[in-house]
């Protein structure tokens, strides 16, 4: 997955907008936004945050400045451990010509020492959207970690992976129907980028409008 691969695959698939959500990091977002702009694809800067509760949350931001401010906060809450590329793979940073310009040394896969509440407040302050990720997955889904979606935070949108999984959670009453549910591809490989099959309506196509629909 490189910036040009991702953007061009998304265009081939006919998508209007994508979000780049690396784990606990936004280091490739600016480049992907730039490549997207050159090719006519909206790229929203974001992060898949792992909170202290071991819950994954998709955080989307209206602009790169907000995303970088969030990254700074997250980095200050990560344990001071170094990545082991042999064990966990490389954490590469690309430029807009898909050249590798850096290796991120931090161990990004661990949890940030930030509660869901801290994270929600910070994302909200930066005018971003806070979306618990793949709620129907066992690994790092909010239901698995916390049993149910806490009602002490004004969360409005939940992301799911499979229709079947979501149906089970809603039909059993574990997840109330009142939420907005979105399905994204959570693509870790090019071939997993979704077809043009999930949609939402906005007045004008930009990050802020999409984020405001998800808040």
């Amino acid at each position: 997955m490189t910036p040009n691969n991702i953007v061009n695959m998304a265009i081939i698939k006919g998508l209007d907008a994508i979000a780049i959500t690396d784990h606990n990091s936004v280091e490739n977002a600016a480049t992907c936004m730039e490549v997207g702009k050159e090719n006519g694809l909206l790229v929203i800067p974001g992060m898949e945050l792992q909170t202290r509760e071991e819950v994954h949350v998709v955080c989307l931001f209206p602009d790169i400045e907000a995303a970088l401010a969030f990254q700074e906060y997250v980095y200050s809450k990560l344990p001071p451990l170094k990545n082991n590329e042999k064990l966990f793979g490389e954490q590469l940073v690309f430029d807009k010509d898909d050249e590798i310009v850096g290796h991120n040394d931090r161990l990004l896969l661990s949890s940030s020492d930030m509660t869901l509440r801290d994270a929600f407040n910070k994302v909200n302050e930066l005018k971003g959207a806070f979306i618990p990720a793949h709620i129907d997955r066992e690994a790092y889904g909010i239901i698995n970690a916390l049993g149910f979606v806490p009602d002490d935070l004004p969360i409005s949108t939940l992301e799911y992976k499979n229709e079947e999984g979501l149906k089970k959670l809603v039909n059993s009453g574990i997840v109330p129907k009142r939420y907005n549910f979105i399905r994204s591809s959570d693509a870790h490989y090019l071939q997993d980028i979704s077809e043009r099959q999930n949609e939402m309506e906005v007045d004008e196509l930009n990050s802020l409008n999409i984020i405001n629909k998800l808040k």
Binding site: A145, G147, P150, D152
Partner: peptide, 9 residues
């Protein structure tokens, strides 16, 4: 876990 959900459980 120290999230309020532990109390509900």
């Amino acid at each position: 876990q120290i999230h309020p959900n532990i109390i509900a459980v």
